[in-house]
């Protein structure tokens, strides 16, 4: 299943390493990454595939959010369907 991870917050070292390491441990495959820094603000969007992950989706979302908080970032995992629905006819 296609899902989207978004990460935002003040830029610091190791954000990508931390998030991608966590996703690797959970069996989530990263398919695409785009990342920008505006001033001190860090914003990253990852397209991921969670098919191989053994963790239930809503649990994964919660764990990712908690992990993000521990490094001072806002991290969300959302079902890709919502973006598809809202932006594609």
């Amino acid at each position: 299943m296609r899902a989207v991870v978004t990460v935002s917050g003040t830029d610091r070292r190791g954000i990508i390493a931390k998030v991608s390491g966590f996703l690797y441990e959970k069996g989530v495959n990263i398919e695409d990454i785009s990342q920008t820094i505006l001033g001190e603000q860090f914003a990253m969007i990852m397209m991921v595939d969670v098919t191989e992950s053994n963790t239930e989706f809503s649990v994964l979302a919660q764990e990712l959010e908690d992990m993000g908080r521990s490094i001072g970032m806002t991290v969300r995992l959302q079902h890709g369907a919502i973006f598809d629905a809202m932006h594609n006819v």
Partner: peptide, 12 residues
């Protein structure tokens, strides 16, 4: 598919 901007728009 959707773009990064669309993702950010929805989150906003």
């Amino acid at each position: 598919m959707f773009t990064s901007n669309q993702v950010l728009e929805t989150i906003e």
